[in-house]
Simulated scan of single mutants.
Amino acid sequence: MHGFGPVKKQFQGWTQEGRIGSHKVLLLKPATFMNESGRAIGEALRFYKLGPDALTVFHDELDLAPFKVKVKRGGGTAGHNGLRSTDQHLGPEFRRVRIGIGHPGHKDRVTGYVLGNYAKAELDPLSDMLGAIGAEAPTLFATRFYEGELGDAGLIEELEEACLDLAREDRAGVAWSKAHGYRGYTSYASLNDLPARDPRFADLVKLLNKHVARFAEACAFDLGGRKLKLDSLWVNVLKPGGTHSGHIHPHSAVSGTIYIATPAGAGALKLEDPRLPMMMAAPTRRADAGEDHATFVYAEPKPGSVFLWESWLRHEVVPNAAKGERISISFNYR
């Protein structure tokens, strides 16, 4: 379809060079064992002096229905040995094309299932799916969304204690929350110096700085050599039934949230397609549309999840349907 050249043996695998639109592309199929595939990928990127932001990994996904495709950047490995190896060699911030194969139903059948071939009846839908993936339909004006892990369980526990302490002791914040109908507590309007006030928040900021720097690089921000700096940081303790309607964060470049406590049913972060006000007569999307076509995307957090987005992206906190409090810390960088 894209006129790729002949197969070559290099980088501990097989490669083909070609172009997709205006982009020069190298296809690499590692010849290593799956759990060592990161070695081959790392060798290729080092040769071309490229970082993980230039990498797209195509992989099978047990947790997606057969022939369903989703694309994301960053995140965990979900037990996939090839992703785990790539993460170990390059870090998590590469693009993943998740190709659904479905689950065989029992964990004892997984190994044979993922190593087996497609059934004859599956070949036509497989061909359709691969054709759609390979079609030259570039995505314009991409919106980045970062999902990372703080990676410090001890600090998460300390921050939970710190957030609950504030919810009890910050009288101005409690009063503001009550006056503005916030179901729970937020320090948004009462405290603007948490990192200076409490070393636990200062330790958090040191870790967040690294995540924000990676996200800024993925967004291709031209910062003239400077780094984005923390502008504001506040605590949210959301009681059952609490919510926060759709909004943006003006006067900032990057916004985000670190999740401290997310009991079952606490809900997702709901992200809105920024093109929505301009779609006018556009038809609704099919139920099986990928995330890049969705009107709304729901990002499900867990304790330690770090979500980042550009501050103009409209988002909302869905109602907390859990029996306990959902605790998070939000922030802006500029």
Rank of each mutant, 00 (worst) to 15 (best):
G154C: 07
L269W: 06
V174H: 01
E157R: 15
Y182S: 05
I248S: 11
P301H: 04
R285D: 08
S127F: 05
D222C: 02
L308Y: 02
L130M: 10
A189R: 11
Y188T: 01
A264G: 08
P199G: 11
L164T: 05
F141Q: 07
Y185N: 00
I99Q: 07
P301A: 03
G38K: 05
M34I: 03
T15R: 08
L204Y: 11
N320P: 08
L191S: 09
W234L: 00
L45D: 11
R39S: 12
S305I: 01
D222K: 06
I260K: 12
A31P: 04
T257E: 04
E93F: 12
R109W: 06
V317C: 10
P6W: 01
A253R: 04
A268E: 13
H293G: 13
N35G: 03
S330A: 15
A65Y: 10
H251S: 02
L204F: 09
A179Q: 13
G116A: 09
F47T: 14
H180E: 12
S311C: 00
D60T: 00
G91L: 09
T56S: 13
L90S: 13
T284F: 12
D203E: 15
G51W: 04
L313D: 08
T111E: 12
D292V: 06
G13H: 04
R275W: 09
R183Y: 05
H315I: 00
F94N: 07
S330E: 01
D288Y: 11
F94Y: 15
R285T: 12
G79Y: 05
G102H: 10
S177I: 03
G154Q: 11
K70N: 14
A287S: 14
T284E: 14
R168I: 03
F307C: 01
E217G: 11
D222I: 00
A142I: 06
P263I: 00
V254Y: 02
S190Q: 05
E147R: 13
A196Q: 14
P125H: 05
A294Y: 09
P138C: 06
P240V: 00
P195V: 02
Q16Y: 07
G184H: 02
R84I: 04
R96S: 11
L228V: 03
M280Y: 12
A179S: 14
